[in-house]
Amino acid sequence: MQITRSGLVGLILAALAILVLPMLAGGQWLKIFTSTTAFALAAMGAGFMYARLGMVSLAQVGLMGIGGWVTLRLNHAFNLPFEANLLIGAAMTSVLGMILALPALRMRGLYLALITLMVAGGLEIIFTAYQFPNGGDGFWGVGTSFSATMRRPFLGQTDAGFLRYALVVALLGFLLIEGHRRSASGRAWALIRRSEAAALASGVNVTLYKTWAFGLSGLLAGLGGGVLAGSLGLLDASTFRASESVLLFALVVVGGARFWLGAVITAVLYRVAPGLLNNWGVDADLALVFFGAALLHAVITAPDGLAGQIFGLFSKEAAHDRA
């Protein structure tokens, strides 16, 4: 398998991040970087759906909530290792993503976006009503004064170790998408994006490949949610509001959905920028104004987002596609 220049840069940076970032960052920053990584996983899912299939998914953060919920629920109910909880959570989110996709399969563009937004709204209501498991009794597992411990992976007991662990999961997520993109699935997706008639005329089972894309995107969101649960130990319904899904998608467009760097930029903007502004004494709500301006910029002049512009600086042809 061929490694492109931007891919090589990505792999080197990922290796550096995995080795160095947990050593450099301290205290609160470890947790911030870990949750940034979790959101980067979700952003990757929304990004590849948008860039490769032209489908807008506005439920990605809500789906993270599903992954987080299942991971927490399993953690408090059984004595399984973290890996099992994380993977089952991701798999269930993936299946849910595919089921939610079914009514959306016949829809395109705005209608598809609206359906996913309704899903995000529904998830917000459920999370707000039932909250996230914290070790309490019953199916919902919510107790008023409970705070049972969240077991972490063997290699990620400390915050630094867990950040490293999260970065490895994110790297695997990137590679999963990249592997798909270069195989028959990626080619089928490219045709579907061109037009469904072209895909059908080429023998592509459009329903299957669209559903699979939803499943893959859900899997990444679920992994992100599980990683977030592992990092924080507790999750709060306000993290997974529908408006957060919309914001994340807007930032996916700003960051650049076609490139690995786009997902990193998206997550940093989403998770780090508001905190930094806060530290500098700027109202965090002002971040939304900046994001809005950046979105306009991306939509009007930079269809490949910030990542596209950055790669464009280094190579004249990279901005084209082969990230």
Binding site: A190, R194, A197, A201
Partner: peptide, 30 residues
């Protein structure tokens, strides 16, 4: 298409994201 039907469209339908060769593979894949 799997049975052996091929067609082109009035407006050509080449996937911009794929190379020429990959555009052919997209059919062979199925």
């Amino acid at each position: 298409s799997r049975w052996g039907l091929r067609r082109s469209f009035q407006r050509e339908q080449i996937a911009d994201d794929l190379t020429v060769e990959e555009n052919l593979w997209a059919i062979a894949d199925n």
